[in-house]
Structures are given as C-alpha cells and as structure tokens.
C-alpha cells in the first residue's frame, strides 16, 4: 500500500480546514490566557513588614529604603527587578540577582527589607491541604 500525499489530502474537506484552523486558534487562545500567570507586573518593596513602594515593571526606576542597618537600594528594569545594594553582612538578597517571575522574592533580613514581584493575580508560593 503506497501512501501518497494526494491520497491523504483527499481526506480534507473545506469545513475540515475550518475546524482545524479553529482548533489551532483555540490552542493559541488557551496559551495566551492560561500561560500568563508567571508574568510579573509589579515590584513590591517592604521595610519592617510595611509596603513602602510598589513599582510598575514597565519602566526603569530605583528606590532607596531605610532599614536598621542603613540604606537598601532596589532597581527596576522593564520586566525585572533586583536588590542593587544592601548593608547586610552576607548580601544574600543582592547575590540573588535579577528577579523576573511573579512570586519571586528577595529578602534582606538583617536590614528588614524585602522585594517581591507580583503578577496580575496573586500566585501561590505554598499550597497546603
């Protein structure tokens, strides 16, 4: 049995192309609507547990926050944010580098400053049943 392409092509009727096109469109639609969760839109900066700044990730910005040890500097670029400098002794939050996904957090514990990225809807960071 020889399987020539024109044999298979005969299986397509005009409406079939429509249905397949609709199916592919549905795929694209689902991907666009359901795969948006990880995109970060806002950077939230807290000091001593209180929100001190909420920056849009649309444009570059930077903010200085005062804590018990001194000044922590947070830098924002389109789509990402990081702790640029911190007076803490071990520099964990600085070494974490750029954060780009919703729900990502950098915590400068000694200086009581934290940076957190938020999406359109709040993402879970833990689930418990």
């Amino acid at each position: 049995m020889k399987l020539a392409w024109h044999e298979w092509r005969a299986g397509f009727r005009p409406g079939d192309i429509l249905v397949i096109g609709g199916g592919l469109a549905a795929c694209v639609f689902f991907a666009l609507t359901l795969w948006q969760g990880g995109v970060a839109r806002w950077a939230e900066v807290r000091a001593g547990g209180k929100v001190v700044a909420r920056l849009s990730l649309d444009r570059p910005a930077s903010v200085d926050v005062d804590g018990p040890l001194g000044q922590t500097r947070v830098q924002v670029e389109p789509g990402r944010a990081r702790v640029l400098s911190d007076p803490g002794p071990r520099q964990y939050c600085v070494l974490q580098g750029w954060l780009s996904r919703a729900g990502a957090v950098a915590i400068c514990a000694p200086n009581e400053v934290s940076l957190r990225l938020l999406g359109d809807s709040s993402a879970y960071d833990t689930l418990n049943y």
Partner: peptide
C-alpha cells in the same frame, strides 16, 4: 459535503 471524518475527529 463540507465536514468529513477529520472534522469529527478533531
């Protein structure tokens, strides 16, 4: 005439 097994299948 317009919709065959391919449509049904998808």
């Amino acid at each position: 005439r317009w919709f065959g097994p391919v449509s049904h299948s998808v």
